[in-house]
Write a protein that binds this DNA or RNA. Structure first.
Lengths: 114, 114
DNA sequence: CCCGTATATGTAGAACTCCTACATATAATA
DNA sequence: TATTATATGTAGGAGTTCTACATATACGGG
């Protein structure tokens, strides 16, 4: 995850990071660093999830009760905080997806001059 | 455009307002109030373009050289500032659309777990 | 063995966009 | 006459993201 010299990636669409994190956690519990990797890889490296965005986001999600966390050990043997999505988090994810789709459709209509 | 009593509309996707305004202006020059109406109507009232978002955005766009403005008279006979998109603004719009599409595709890939 | 890179978490502060709320003014309508 | 719609604008706060920094360990190459 060294930043230096890597080509400039596009910014996250503001407001979508929480949705991407929650979605990533629906598959399995993951620690923060792995979540970031997942999102970067799945997005084909369009996104970079910066630490300064990631950890505050995870704190936000936990504070809202959408994820829980526990210290554990990563596959590489280092300490890592694993996050698990809650039932409430899954509901929230569903709502965020609906809202996102709705907004996307609206943007599309404006952009098509429909 | 009275806010009181109207049903809650969803927020704009942060960062997309400039694109929507520029797109609206590709058809014809419009004054701010009309731009807001256009976006609201075209979006099927999904969006509300607040004055506190609209006018700073227009100032931003003008400062960047993507629109120009002149005082004129609206169809209702009131003074209004008409905005015209510039060649530079059209190029910017093209770039914003490309970037938006790229980000959207990336989000889609993450959400599909592709 | 040492050094750089990857792994891993976190904070501080600035930038940016958006929202709420306010202020002002005129034309049209009830 | 009073309210609503039209029309522009500012001030201040909220929220998310980014840059930059701080810390620490594991691993691989030289």
């Amino acid at each position: 995850m060294t930043r230096s010299g890597s080509p400039k990636k596009s910014e996250l669409l503001k407001g979508t990071l929480d949705m991407l994190i929650l979605k990533t956690l629906t598959v399995q519990p993951l620690h923060g660093y792995a979540i970031a990797q997942q999102i970067e890889e799945l997005s084909d490296n369009v996104f970079t999830v910066e630490q300064g965005s990631l950890y505050p986001a995870l704190q936000r999600l936990q504070k809202s009760g959408w994820v829980t966390s526990r210290w554990s050990e990563s596959p590489t043997g280092r300490r890592a905080r694993y996050y698990t999505i809650t039932a409430s988090g899954r509901r929230q994810l569903g709502q965020e997806i609906s809202s996102f789709d709705r907004v996307l459709l609206a943007i599309h209509r404006v952009m098509e001059g429909a």
